[in-house]
Computed example of a mutant assay.
Amino acid sequence: MLMAVLLSALCGLASSLFLRVRHKERRCFTEELPDRARLVGVYWTRLYNEQRDEYLPVDPDLEINIMATDPDEQLVLSGSYGSAGRFTFTSRRPGQHQVCLQSSQRRPWLTLHLEVRVGNRTNDYDDRLTYLQLRVRQLTELVYQIQKEQDHHILRLNEFNNVNFSTNNLVFWWVVIQSLYLVALVPCSW
């Protein structure tokens, strides 16, 4: 059981996207993040020529505007970056975070490669650590990440239970009202 939890936690921590973006087109994706989770996005761009079906060099003045919002639609990250780079932010509360990318490129198609990492895969460790120190630090951060994900799942479970209880309560009272209505109609029909 513990191994299954660890594997599912590790598999969901990194993903890659391949996007084709037109001039001034805004592309967004959502990422479910627990509370105080770090998200790192590493990206690079290439121009795509449809007539030749090939990739061209990217203009050095190219800007990629990146904007991220939390579940309350509060701005978490906003900035202009170059044709290749890295952005990072830490979630303030759990839930669906939206990350949007927009190109300033004037040509028709820009291909954007994006790798998204969440949690302990975002850490860059110091090279001066011994192997044992590095493993202890990695395992400690993995345990911390699992605890955060468990807290997030408990929060989602509580929300689900509240909705379930409310629905069951409404169904119960609906049946009671229908039964009383039928009991009231039976004497009238005789």
Rank of each mutant, 00 (worst) to 15 (best):
I146P: 00
A9G: 07
V40Y: 01
L13H: 08
G119H: 04
L134I: 04
R38A: 08
K148T: 07
L155C: 01
R36H: 07
L129I: 01
R156A: 11
C100G: 06
D35N: 08
S189R: 15
L47P: 00
Y81E: 11
E63N: 12
Y181A: 06
F165K: 15
H23S: 15
V118C: 02
C11V: 02
R52K: 13
R52F: 00
D70P: 03
V42P: 00
T30G: 11
V176T: 09
S83V: 02
L157T: 15
Q138M: 13
L182P: 00
V76H: 04
T122E: 04
L101Q: 05
G79V: 09
I154Q: 12
L10D: 08
A184F: 05
R128K: 11
Q138P: 01
T130R: 14
G82L: 06
L101R: 08
E149M: 09
R36Y: 06
L77C: 03
E50T: 10
G12C: 11
D70V: 07
T45V: 08
P187V: 09
N123K: 15
D126L: 02
V116Y: 01
N169W: 05
I177D: 03
W173D: 07
F87I: 09
R38P: 00
V171D: 03
L170K: 12
D126A: 06
L132F: 01
S91F: 02
W190K: 11
L101N: 03
A184K: 13
V118N: 02
R128E: 02
L142G: 05
S166L: 12
E115T: 13
N161V: 14
D127A: 12
Y131W: 08
L170H: 12
C188S: 09
P71Y: 03
C100A: 10
V175G: 05
R86H: 04
L10Y: 03
E141W: 00
